[in-house]
């Protein structure tokens, strides 16, 4: 039983971890705390929902299309919302991203109303049994997808010219420009990648929850907490933090009550900040 609870906790934790990862990508490349990160995930959910449920597009096409759509949203966010205020004081930039969060979630509410929509599961079928432990297919899929995506992102960051440009900009924008790197373009691409990662989290999460317009904020809060627990700016930290939050959430919901699952993330955050204020992986990028 405990194994099952931990595995499904890891599955929801994997989605928080991915959103946190996207969040950290933006923080590292643009020094922007993006409060609209959860909305990138929600946007992908709705695009997938509209395409598959109302447009009857098969899921194997609808899912990549929705991830592409959130990448586009991330890119547009940088071009339209962030670029005009980049370099202003931190409060201005934060206020702008909070504004964007409100606009996007209220926009979704205007279009789709406040009600929840069920989302078709891509891999239905009986749960898989492993020596007496029964695990839902979607949970395993989510964990596997997260692991693959993280490996791919790591490879991209270390091996591709784009990854190298991104890391240069993250470390020193001015010197990156002196090296011939188009900083604005790189940051916009960073936003697109970050939003795409959040979009993947969204479509992985969609089948296990009901899709609704007000999901963005709770997702943001979970991933924000995950990023802080991990040591703000650290990629392995964001992943570990997300998984940890997911597992603790699930264990507490099961052992105590679902009423406490949001309280508990903050409790974990407070304990972390008291015991280890630099996070789990303070010096890793």
């Amino acid at each position: 039983m405990l194994v099952q609870i931990v595995v499904s906790g890891l599955a929801s934790g994997a989605t928080y971890a991915l959103i946190a990862l996207g969040f950290v990508i933006i923080w590292n490349t643009a020094a922007v705390v993006n409060f609209a990160q959860g909305e990138f995930a929600v946007a992908a959910m709705f695009v997938a929902l509209v395409l598959s449920r109302f447009g009857h597009v098969p899921l194997f096409l609808a899912l990549p299309a929705s991830v592409a759509a959130s990448a586009l949203l991330g890119w547009l966010t940088e071009r339209i919302v962030i670029r005009p205020v980049i370099g202003r004081n931190a409060m201005t930039v934060v206020t702008v991203t909070i504004g964007l969060q409100i606009v996007l979630s209220d926009g979704a509410k205007l279009i789709f109303g406040g009600q929840p929509y069920p989302f078709p599961a891509p891999f239905s079928g009986a749960p898989l049994g492993f020596g007496g432990v029964v695990l839902p297919r979607q949970s395993l899929l989510v964990i596997l997808a997260m692991a693959l995506l993280v490996a791919a992102l790591h490879a991209m960051s270390v091996l591709t010219p784009f990854g190298k440009r991104l890391r240069a900009v993250a470390q020193d924008r001015e010197v990156a420009a002196m090296m011939g790197i188009d900083v604005n373009r790189t940051v916009a691409q960073g936003f697109a990648v970050s939003a795409a990662v959040a979009g993947v989290a969204g479509v992985l999460l969609a089948p296990v929850i009901f899709v609704s317009a007000d999901l963005g904020l709770p997702l943001l809060i979970k991933s924000f907490v995950a990023a802080i627990i991990g040591g703000f700016g650290s990629y392995p930290g964001a992943l570990a933090g997300g998984l940890l939050i997911g597992v603790i959430d699930n264990v507490v919901s099961y052992a105590v009550s679902t009423d406490y699952r949001d309280v508990i993330s903050f409790l974990v955050l407070i304990v972390m900040l008291l015991l280890r204020p630099t996070g789990l992986f303070p010096n890793h990028r």
Partner: peptide, 13 residues
Amino acid sequence: STVQENLELGGLA
């Protein structure tokens, strides 16, 4: 970044 990565970045453009 490593020394080699720094040099690669210098030559990227």
